[in-house]
Design a protein around this nucleic acid. Structure first.
Lengths: 257, 257
DNA sequence: AACGTTATTCCGTTGAGTGGAACATAGTGG
DNA sequence: CCACTATGTTCCACTCAACGGAATAACGTT
C-alpha cells in the first residue's frame, strides 16, 4: 500500500508537518533555520515562518540565546494524550523492570502502527556499558528482533504485502532478502522469540517476544537488548526468562476487559 | 507576559496547529469534521483539508467506518521524542509506585513549562473508587496541589508576574484572589507540601511536594490524590510519606550529572 | 573593524487556500 | 421504502495570503 493520498490537501500544512517530523528524525536535538531548510529543501523564509507559527502554538520552542529551535510542550501534550490509550504500557512496566534487573540489560517495549513500530518505554540497567533506545523513533518491521517479533505474528496477507515491497537496509547486517526473512520468521514462530545481532543497529544484540491481548495480532513486543558482544552468548539464557514475562503479561491483558 | 507574538506567521499553519491542539483538549477522543469546524470556528472545507494533510503525514488517523478522526503515530513520536529529555520520569517511577502502594491512592508526576504544567505519569491503586488524571493536559499554575507546589518554589519575579494576570477559575473552589493565594503559597513553603480539596477538579483531593535537581526551580512535582471525601482525613498521614519520597528523589537527581 | 554565518523581514507577484454551495453518503424515523 | 437530517467531501471562481529572492539585522570570529 503506497499511501492512498486521495482527497485534497494543503501543501502548507504538509510542509509544517514535515518540519515537526524533522524533529523526531533528529531525535529531539535542537536545530537552526538554515539546517532545517536544507534538510527539507524549503526556503529559509518559509521554514522561519512555519517555525514562528508553531512556536506561537507551543509546538516548538526557541532558545533566544542560541537561536535554535526544539520541541515545545504542545508536542508533549499530543504524545501523552495518545499514550493514554496504550494501557499495555502501564501493565508492562513492572515486567520491564524485572527483566532488566534479572538480565542486567536494557528491557524495551514497542508498539506497532501499520508498517512501523516504535519503542514506547525502556528500563536500563545500572552498569557502565549499556544500551539505550530512541523512544518514539519509527522503525520498519523487518529489521531487528522486536520488528521481527511483530512481523512473525501478523496475518499472512499483511506479511505478503509487506515483503512485496523492497526491504530497506538500516545497516550492512539488515536482512533484505524476502526469502531469508520468511525463513527467519518461521523460526521466530516455532521458538516463540526473535533474536538479532546488529540487524537494526550495528553493535546491538536483542531478543524479543510478542505480547498478546484478546486479538490475534500482538499488542506489543518486549525485548531485552544490549551490546552485541555480550549477546552472542546471552541469548539462550535470556530467551526463557523473556518468554515467561511475555506469557504472564499476555495472560493479564487477555483477562482484562 | 501576553505572548510576544512578534515575527511573521502563516495563518494556515496556525489553523493546523489549532486542529492538533483540539485533540489534546478533547483528551484524545475521536472527533468529526463538523464538530471540529464549529469548535475552532473554521469552515468545514478547511478543517477537512487540514485533516487530510495531517493524515498523509501520520499525525491523525481516519477511522473509515465512523468517519471520525483521532491522533496518529506521528503525534506519539513527537511526544516520546520530547519525553526522552525528561529523565526525572524514569527516576520517579519507583517512588510513584511505592507511594501509590503505601497510601492506596493515585500518585502522579507533573512537569512545568512556562505558565502551565501537565501530568506526565501516574500510578493508580487497585481499588474500585480511585482517581485517574489526564496525562498531557495543560493546567495553570494556581489551581490544585501540584500547581501550587510549583508556584510556591518559583522566583518572586515569576510569581509576581503570574499573579498580575487574572486567575481563571477551573471550578467554584479555585482560588482566584491573588492575596489569598500568596498566603497559601507561604504556607506551602513553610510546610514543604501543598494540599488542595477540589481547587482544580471538584471532588478531588490532593497533596503535592516539589522535586529539585541542581537548579533552584523544581524539576517536577509529585502528588498523591484521590476522592475528596477520603482526603479530608488523609492529608496529615500522607504528607510525611510524600515528603520523604520527594527528598530522596531530589537527593538522587542532585547527585547525578 | 571587516568578515562569514545565520536569522529575520520586505515586497511585488501569483498561485494556492478559501468559503459558499453543490454533491455524496450515512443513518433515522415515519 | 423513501423522505429527511446530519455529516463528510468536492467544486470552482475569487482573492488574499504565502512565496522566494534579496535586503537587513544580529551574531560570533579572526
Amino acid at each position: 500500500m503506497t499511501e492512498k493520498t486521495r482527497g485534497q490537501t494543503i501543501s502548507t500544512v504538509e510542509r509544517a508537518a514535515d518540519v515537526l517530523n524533522a524533529f523526531t528524525e533528529l531525535d529531539g536535538a535542537d536545530v537552526g533555520v538554515t539546517e532545517l531548510a536544507e534538510r527539507l529543501d524549503l526556503s529559509k523564509a518559509v521554514v522561519h515562518r512555519i517555525l514562528t507559527s508553531l512556536r506561537v502554538k507551543g509546538f516548538v520552542e526557541l532558545d533566544e540565546e542560541s537561536r535554535r529551535y526544539s520541541l515545545g510542550p504542545a508536542s508533549l501534550s499530543l504524545g501523552l494524550t495518545f499514550l493514554q490509550k496504550i494501557d499495555v504500557r502501564d501493565q508492562a512496566r513492572t515486567f520491564l523492570r524485572d527483566l532488566s534487573d534479572g538480565t542486567n540489560e536494557t528491557a524495551t517495549l514497542s508498539v506497532r502502527h501499520g508498517d512501523l513500530r516504535m519503542y514506547v518505554d525502556q528500563v536500563t540497567p545500572s552498569r557502565e556499558v549499556r544500551m539505550t533506545v530512541q523512544l518514539g523513533h519509527p522503525y520498519p518491521l523487518h529489521a531487528g528482533a522486536s520488528s521481527k517479533a511483530f512481523l512473525a505474528h501478523l496475518s499472512e496477507g499483511f506479511v505478503d504485502d509487506y515483503l512485496s515491497r523492497p526491504l530497506e537496509p538500516l545497516g550492512s547486517l539488515t536482512i533484505t532478502d524476502p526469502g531469508l526473512l520468511r525463513k527467519d520468521l518461521a523460526l521466530v514462530r516455532s521458538r516463540g522469540y526473535a533474536s538479532s545481532l546488529g540487524e537494526r543497529q550495528e553493535g546491538a544484540g536483542s531478543v524479543a517476544a510478542p505480547v498478546f491481548g484478546h486479538e490475534s495480532d500482538p499488542v506489543a513486543v518486549i525485548s531485552v537488548c544490549g551490546p552485541v558482544e555480550r549477546f552472542r552468548g546471552e541469548i539462550d539464557e535470556i530467551a526463557p526468562v523473556l518468554l515467561e514475562s511475555t506469557r504472564m503479561l499476555s495472560r493479564r491483558l487477555g483477562r482484562g476487559s
